[in-house]
């Protein structure tokens, strides 16, 4: 199939879904066997309402639906009115996601490398890691909120908790599977123990770390949203909970769409970076 055909199909499917979503429920009374109850706009809203809600939540239009002017300060006045408007919420969630991702991948890498290269540490810590890993991370979220409060710290810690294990296990595996011949080659070329670590073990393990970055960024976002659900003053997760309390399906849907876009952008950036860092591997060159 040509790229154009594929694109046409994709557009057609997207439009079809939007049409069903927008007008499908109006057929419910006449064809109750065909249209499920779930399509009720009370639950899932509908595209036009979501778009409307988006314009309001993002301060692009005022209460009467008139476009806010950038010049005369209407936009900034609207922004100032709400502590958790769409822009602020997105920024907060994004910031905490990136922070959790950074802390999680770094600490996961360091731990994985240290344990992966030391049989003694592995033997000592193995039962603790297995035990900690078998706790569903989500179960710890309320405790984290309790301990770290409603601010950013608790969200970063939650994100860290879901990312760190993922990266740890990948790095651990990578550190164990460093090619012995590479280490021998380095040693015979005059490398000291420290130089072997720096120039062979770390770069070779990094390949495994990079492979875990794409899932890690998605996990970080999940962690942050989860933290915001349980206790937060700001963020997109908080927006969803507030909209739910008010029974506003459109409000929730706006937040979900923003999350989707944030997720896609983050994953795309990370995948690009990952492909660049792994350009020496033939398989990653193929899917660039």
């Amino acid at each position: 199939m040509s790229r154009l055909t594929i694109l046409l199909w994709q557009v057609a499917i997207a439009l079809g879904l939007a049409v069903v979503w927008e007008w499908g429920y109006s057929l419910h009374d006449r064809l109750p066997w065909l249209v499920p109850e779930l399509l009720d706009p009370y639950f899932v809203s509908k595209p036009s309402a979501i778009y409307d809600q988006f314009l309001h939540a993002s301060c692009l239009v005022d209460k009467r639906g008139i476009w806010n002017d950038w010049g005369n300060g209407q936009f900034s006045k609207c922004m100032a009115r709400s502590e958790n408007n769409l822009w602020v919420a997105t920024l907060i969630t994004l910031k905490n996601t990136l922070a959790g991702f950074a802390v999680g991948t770094t600490s996961g890498f360091v731990l994985g490398l240290a344990l992966g290269r030391s049989d003694r540490l592995t033997a000592i810590f193995q039962p603790f890691i297995v035990a900690a890993n078998s706790i569903p991370r989500i179960a710890l979220a309320p405790i984290i909120i309790l301990a770290f409060g409603l601010g950013d710290a608790s969200k970063i810690v939650t994100a860290w908790l879901v990312v760190v294990f993922l990266v740890f296990f990948n790095t651990f595996e990578g550190a164990r599977s460093v090619d012995r011949d590479h280490i021998s080659a380095a040693r015979l070329l005059g490398a000291s123990e420290w130089q072997i670590t720096r120039t062979v073990i770390v770069p070779s393990t990094m390949a495994w770390l990079f492979a875990s970055l794409t899932p890690a960024i998605s996990f970080a976002l999940i962690g942050v949203i989860l933290g915001e659900f349980i206790g937060a003053q700001q963020g997109i997760g908080r927006m969803i909970i507030e909209a739910e309390a008010r029974g506003e399906a459109a409000g929730m849907m706006v937040a979900v769409f923003v999350l989707m876009i944030v997720g896609v952008i983050l994953a795309t950036i990370v995948r690009r970076v990952q492909n660049h860092l792994l350009r020496w591997r033939p398989q990653s060159a193929a899917n660039l």
């Binding site: 021998s184 490398a191 120039t199 770069p203 070779s204 020496w280």
Partner: peptide, 27 residues
């Protein structure tokens, strides 16, 4: 003493010139 392996043990994450210059870098 220099050693040449039976298997190719070039470091795949380094370019060819970075591989060749590796020992100089160490020194």
């Amino acid at each position: 003493v220099g050693y040449v392996f039976q298997r190719d043990t070039l470091f795949p994450w380094r370019t060819v010139q970075a591989n060749i210059g590796y020992a100089l870098e160490l020194a």
